[in-house]
Nucleic acid binder design. Structure first.
Length: 461
DNA sequence: GGCGGAAATT
DNA sequence: AATTTCCGCC
């Protein structure tokens, strides 16, 4: 049990102080009661390494969207082993673990490129909004880079709207963790939906494939919701994720999360799931910040700014499996050829497919959950910049009941409904309208405004 | 290197 | 459940 492994590897005591990087919300970790609890998962770890510039020499985004190369397999394995207290970890074992992700459709191997894997972000995007009918959206069907990505995105307002019944305000920042001053203690660290770090932002923190920057630098095919445009270098940042000056305090605010923003403006019961500030639709005291970013460090999203990856959150990936399940169940009826699955139509085949598609997906695609780090002893090695100290994640907790602050629960914890898309049952037939992201075109803005008005009428009636 | 089966581990 | 460990095969 005791080992000198890094227990807090990549998990900051306080998210904000954590290298301008990802902080994982508490809900992203398995409950301690579950077996293998609070163990960070490999893909999670990989993403963290990927987002940290200091590991660019070890592992980095490279090549196609979502693709990364393990430049130093031994080192990555060593880091992973350190993290998991597995001193005998090696690339062979690590790669075996990665291979298990094939069936889960979280990753797949880039054939022909050594040590190169690719995240299935498109899946991730879909599952990030299970409440929305994204799977059937022409927008996403077109954006799915795992199905070839050859079709032209339907960028019509309707298409986009189909994905985001409620587009968020673009300028609202939210804190990842509401470090409540009134409720100190274990519950002091309220987790908020916008803790979806991947939905947060950040400047690209990896070496962008130069060849890909050019083409995407201009004229993106469309504006992304909530002002997000992965085609742009700063795609994952609403403010280009400025490096925080040394000594920056925690981010008092984090970037807006489309989902949260959406929920915050939805009629009950969803708005009630949000903390008062959000539920109120509103304003949060900004730390002299603009758009909730200036007040402090943001959690950065470090995904390749390529098309197709609108956002990637822990939640996203964490639900990849569940998506896959749903996909099989409803999105990808046999013979439709409209597979959102990995490799479909790309020539890249999933292991299953490669094997003739006979094999059943053994991983029943239950939700992947991110786990924590309290598994190892706290005797971290200090040869890395990993911080020591109690993990905020381990201290914070999700408060699901209204009494405790109405922290928005993970999507997966939302009450089940008969509909595959829970929100549908509470949403007006006409998508509730949102406050518009700056990126929306004026026409779309009007369109949305009209919808908003209509929706409000409906709600009031 | 890469793959997946199988069993063990946590 | 998610690896970890080991292994034979290509």
């Amino acid at each position: 049990m005791d080992c000198n492994c890094v227990s807090d590897l990549l998990i900051p005591p306080v998210p904000a102080l954590w290298t301008p990087g990802i902080a994982f919300p508490d809900w992203a970790y398995k409950p301690e009661s579950s077996p293998g609890s609070r163990q960070i998962q490999l893909w999670h770890f990989i993403l963290e390494l990927l987002q940290k510039e200091e590991y660019n020499g070890v592992i980095a985004w490279q090549g196609e969207y979502g693709e990364f190369v393990i430049k130093d397999p031994d080192e990555v394995a060593r880091l992973w082993g350190m993290r998991k207290c597995k001193p005998h970890m090696n690339y062979d074992k690590l790669s075996r673990a990665l291979r298990y992700y094939y069936n889960k459709r979280i990753l797949h191997k880039t054939k022909g490129k050594r040590f190169t894997y690719k995240f299935n972000f498109s899946k991730v995007v879909l599952v990030n909004y299970p409440i929305l009918d994204m799977a059937n959206s022409p927008f996403f069907l077109a954006q799915n880079h795992f199905n070839g990505g050859t079709s032209t995105p339907d960028c019509s307002p309707e298409a986009i709207q189909s994905l985001f019944p409620r587009l968020p305000d673009s300028g609202r920042g939210t804190s990842l963790f509401e470090r409540s001053t009134t409720a100190p203690g274990p519950e002091g660290d309220k987790l908020r939906l916008d803790s979806f770090p991947f939905l947060s932002t950040g400047a690209p923190c990896y070496t962008k494939p130069p060849s890909l920057l050019g083409p995407y630098a201009r004229n993106p095919p469309f504006d992304y919701p909530w002002g997000f445009n992965p085609y742009l270098p700063g795609a994952f940042s609403l403010n280009n994720c400025p490096k925080l000056p040394p000594g920056s305090l925690y981010p008092s605010q984090f970037y807006p999360n489309p989902l949260q923003s959406s929920l915050s403006q939805l009629p009950h019961p969803f708005s009630s799931l949000l903390p008062p500030a959000e539920a109120g639709g509103g304003e949060r005291g900004q730390t002299g910040g603009t758009n909730g970013t200036a007040g402090g460090q943001q959690i950065r999203l470090c995904l390749p700014p390529y098309p197709g990856g609108l956002s990637l959150g822990r939640t996203d990936i964490a639900n990849v499996a569940s998506l896959a399940e749903r996909e099989r169940a409803e999105v990808n009826p046999p013979g439709t050829g409209v597979s959102l699955g990995l490799g479909a139509g790309t020539g890249l085949q999933s292991p299953t497919e490669r094997r003739g598609g006979v094999k059943q997906d053994p991983e029943s695609d239950s939700d992947l959950e991110i786990t924590d780090l309290s598994d190892c002893s706290s005797d971290n090695e200090n040869d890395h910049d990993f911080r020591k100290g109690p993990s905020l994640a381990s201290r914070s907790q999700i408060v699901l009941d209204g009494k405790k602050g109405s922290v928005l629960p993970p999507i997966s914890s939302l009450p089940p409904t008969a509909s595959p898309h829970p929100l549908k049952s509470v949403m007006p037939v006409s998508p509730p309208p949102p406050s518009l992201p700056l990126s929306l075109s004026p026409s779309l803005a009007l369109h949305e405004r009209h919808r908003e008005t209509e929706t409000l009428k409906m709600i009031r009636s």
